[in-house]
Structures are given as C-alpha cells and as structure tokens.
Amino acid sequence: MSDEKYVHKDCRNYAPIDVRKGFCHVHKKEVPADTEVCAKFERIAKCRYCKNFCADKEKIELGVCEASMSKPKFVAYPDMVAVTCEMYKET
C-alpha cells in the first residue's frame, strides 16, 4: 500500500462533487480529484484494493470479480468504489 501513489479520489474523506473535484471532509474544502493526498489520507475501498479483484492483463482498467457467482466470473473495474460491497476484502 505504501508504494502506491494516491490521489484525492482514492481517499475515504473525499466526497466527489463531479468528475474533476470533490469535497474533503477533513480539511473542509474543495480538492481536485487527481492531486496528491495529505497525511490524513485514508484509503477508500475500491475493487483495485480488493483480494477478489483479478486484473485483466490484456485490457486496460478491467478485470474480474472472483467473488461473483456468475460463470464465467463477472467483469469488474479497478476504480469502482466498494464501500457498499459485502464481498470486499482489503488487500
């Protein structure tokens, strides 16, 4: 986790206003989605941080969810927020 470069939209305290920016509940101000995080960063649950996510080696921004009941396993995308996913397992 520590090696990865995070941006604001990866933070649990970031409430997305739109595709470009969000509201930081810690600093109580608007922040750009894609700029670097501060020391108060708290990683939000996303498919890319889930043990059940298996990245597709050939397709960008796609993979499968190993926890899905479908056969074959259903597609998943790494940037999807998973705070409501009952199958989420933190890596």
Binding site: V19, R20, A33, I60, M80
Partner: peptide, 28 residues
C-alpha cells in the same frame, strides 16, 4: 462537459465520465 479534457471523457456533449471508467462502460 462539451468536450473531453484531462482524464475526463465527454459523452453526448453533455456528461463527463472518468476515462478509467470508459472500458467498463463499453464492456457493459
């Protein structure tokens, strides 16, 4: 969002979608 910019893709000249979501948009 009348045109794409940075990591945002314009859809139908109106909606902005993050480019990292475009592959799944098309997959679905």
């Amino acid at each position: 969002v009348t045109k794409s910019f940075d990591k945002v893709v314009s859809i139908a000249g109106k909606f902005g979608m993050r480019q990292e979501e475009i592959p799944v948009l098309l997959e679905l």
